[in-house]
């Protein structure tokens, strides 16, 4: 639609014809501009429509009482969006740095890692990625790229441990 049709312009001999040629070209460009901007705007709106309307909602959720969470112990927390999170206490300072909350999503290509008790490691079945209990990469593609298991933000308030997780997820395979 933005193609500008050739207009028959007679051979330019004097100023009058030159002016008419210029006007014809100007109107052709104006038409093209009008079409491109208007339909382009329509297309841009369509693009905005297809882009996600809002980011996935997140919230701070209660995990456990800090006092009852012994150093060295860990628990598996299931977020409302279905994500399983390994929460562990590593130190006894009493602040939020004592804790780590590891995502089970492999940083390489997004598969789910699982805990292998006998090997004391997290294992990703997609490309044999291996992580130690603190989430640091041991071997496989994550090790080569230096990617650790992602951590969820944690917070302590009034002696209670909170975690920031997603609220909406897909139904899980068990349902």
């Amino acid at each position: 639609m933005s193609e500008h049709p050739e207009t028959p312009v007679p051979p330019q001999e004097d100023g009058e014809l030159d002016r008419r040629g210029f006007l014809a070209r100007a109107s052709a460009y104006a038409m093209g501009a009008g079409l491109v901007t208007s339909y382009g705007c329509f297309a841009a709106m369509a693009g905005r429509y297809l882009y996600p309307a809002r980011p996935a909602p997140k919230a701070w959720m209660y995990v456990a009482e800090v006092a009852g969470f012994g150093v060295g112990s860990s628990l598996t927390y299931t977020a409302p969006d279905g994500a399983t999170v390994a929460v562990a206490r590593q130190k006894s300072a009493g602040n939020v740095d004592d804790f780590i909350a590891l995502s089970s999503t492999c940083p390489h290509l997004g598969c789910k890692v699982h805990w292998e008790g006998q090997n004391q490691r997290f294992f990703c079945p997609c490309h044999n990625g291996v992580f130690d209990p603190s989430g640091a990469p041991v071997s496989g593609p994550p090790f080569e790229a230096g990617q650790s298991l992602p951590r969820f933000p944690l917070r302590i308030e009034g002696g209670l441990l909170y975690i920031e997780v997603g609220l909406e997820g897909l139904p899980t395979g068990e349902e």
Binding site: S27, A30, M31
Partner: peptide
């Protein structure tokens, strides 16, 4: 016609 199209486009 072209001018009308420009006007309508706007």
């Amino acid at each position: 016609k072209r001018r009308v199209i420009f006007f309508l486009g706007m």
